[in-house]
Design a protein around this nucleic acid. Structure first.
Lengths: 159, 159
DNA sequence: GCTACCTTACTCGGATATTTGCTGTCCGAGTCAGCCGGG
DNA sequence: CCCGGCTGACTCGGACAGCAAATATCCGAGTAAGGTAGC
């Protein structure tokens, strides 16, 4: 999994804590974690294409959440950065070479058993991530550290 | 996910269908799906290090299952090829830069919330794969195509 | 004094290098089968 | 005829290139703010 997923997740949580009308620049978001600015910008672009954040150019421009933090799941973020393809990719080797000579009864023509097993695992993974929203995670962070939200808001208000 | 996982899974199913005392060479296993022999051998080595298959050198050598097919889960296979590290890797960016200045109350010192959410998803994924054994999958393939096991056994017996 | 325009600086967005790690290949160490010679 | 040693070929195992993708970077298009000139 790409490293940008971690960056995007934390950035979304931080964006949920700043004033909704205030746009935060990629440079500022990157500075908070000492990340490479231009590369984080690229990841934020991906979030923008997915509608998770809305972007604005020019002075006073930047990024803000595209919809309510309770409407953004971790699955949305992961899919925006990493793509929505599942981890296991069936290349259909069972149809190549001597293995392909094996005649399949018409009535039982079905997907590859191995691929189906991995698909079910992938589905379980997706369900877990889809069940966690940015608002949900932000609340959990606040529970662990009540000062976090105020610290973040004030830090991004300065400058 | 690496492509070799698919190869390894199919090879394990095939190995469960050949006579247990007969070792199958990497070249023969590769020919069945027209895979690159040397590279498949590399993957089988990984299975060997994990104890999933046992290898034997010299004439009449080759690979055979290291334990009963009902004792080999898809998780074992995936971990042997792809490594047992979870997909999401927390690099701890929340401790770097200005974000690290945020003091954390002693009583609540806990793991990164984002990392924990991804760990739970990973756990669900692992559970699904751990629940499916090679014997299980082989039976399902036979249900879809009853001729499969005999075809495989006879093809690997020839030559 | 007010308004409309222009300049300017700032931001995103996509096109461009660099590195990492997966894919694929090759050759050497080890090993067992089969053969040969001797008893 | 039986047994022990030797030869030889065959197999795995790890070391060595090639390539695709992720990482990191840079510059141009677009934009809104702020200043300026005109009315």
């Amino acid at each position: 999994m790409r490293e940008g997923v971690e960056w995007a997740a934390h950035c979304c949580i931080n964006l949920s804590w700043v004033a909704p009308e205030k746009a935060v620049t990629a440079a500022r978001l990157a500075a908070f974690y000492e990340l490479p600015t231009a590369y984080l910008n690229k990841q934020l672009n991906a979030l923008g294409r997915a509608g998770i954040v809305s972007s604005q150019s020019g002075p006073r421009g930047g990024f803000r959440l595209g919809r309510g933090p309770d409407q953004i799941s971790l699955m949305d973020v992961a899919a925006a950065i990493d793509g929505s393809a599942q981890a296991f990719l069936c290349t259909g080797i069972r149809h190549r070479g001597p293995a392909g000579e094996l005649a399949v009864p018409e009535e039982h023509r079905t997907r590859c058993t191995v691929a189906r097993a991995f698909s079910l695992a992938d589905l379980a993974w997706r369900r877990q991530l889809a069940a966690r929203t940015v608002a949900d995670l932000a609340a959990e962070v606040r529970r662990a550290n009540p000062a976090a939200s105020d610290y973040v808001r004030h830090w991004f208000d300065r400058n």
